[in-house]
């Protein structure tokens, strides 16, 4: 139940885009049509689900203060949490590379549809952001972290598919010239954010 709550919360309330603005760069750049937006959304969700548990275990057994006690009691006083950033980004960059190679080998059709987006994901703030939030919030287990990753990813996917659909329709509307393109995309994202704020306060169980 705890996990379900977290899952719903990370999709709707703590939405990566509308509450924390994470992954905005690709959100604005790749939201011109629904199909590619969906592909990128899937790729981001996938990477979140893969990297969060790895980073969770790293954080728990290597980085935190006293985390390395399992190696030898002499290491109990070691606190490596300042290295978190560099380790997390290394995990994300190498996972991206690995996933890219695996997808290319085992599912060429998926690779063809995601191909160009996969390498870009290494620098998507949503993924590093989720790892940093995970470190900050101190989740109970690797499973909780995975659920959080899946929820954040699906929230991101929802947001980018939503705005891509709206932007497809925008092609037919008469927008003031200086506002065309990015300007209106910002304002629409803001309005969608206001709509998502109505989910505030949802709690299950």
């Amino acid at each position: 139940m705890e996990e379900l709550n977290l899952f719903i919360k990370s999709i709707f309330i703590d939405n990566m885009i509308f509450a924390y603005f994470l992954g905005m760069c690709s959100f604005l750049a790749v939201s011109k049509n629904v199909k590619t937006a969906f592909g990128l959304g899937l790729a981001v969700t996938f990477m979140l689900v893969v990297t969060l548990p790895i980073n969770y275990l790293l954080n728990k057994y290597v980085l935190q203060e006293g985390a390395m006690t399992w190696l030898s009691p002499a290491l109990a006083g070691v606190d490596l949490s300042f290295l978190g950033l560099i380790l997390f980004i290394a995990v994300i960059a190498s996972a991206t590379q690995l996933v890219e190679m695996a997808v290319e080998k085992f599912s060429p059709s998926l690779y063809a549809s995601l191909g160009i987006f996969l390498p870009l994901i290494a620098v998507n703030c949503a993924i590093l952001g989720a790892s940093l939030f995970m470190q900050q919030r101190d989740f109970g287990s690797a499973w909780t972290a995975t659920v959080y990753g899946a929820g954040s990813g699906i929230g991101w996917l929802l947001a980018i598919v939503g705005i891509a659909a709206i932007r497809e329709k925008l092609a037919y509307s008469d927008i003031p010239k200086p506002l065309r393109g990015v300007g209106i995309a910002f304002i629409i994202t803001g309005l969608m954010g206001i709509a998502f704020m109505s989910f505030l306060g949802i709690r299950l169980g």
Binding site: A185, F186, I187, G190
Partner: peptide
């Protein structure tokens, strides 16, 4: 809140 930041930048 978050949404107005987006609208301000817009």
């Amino acid at each position: 809140l978050a949404p107005m930041a987006l609208i301000t930048v817009g």
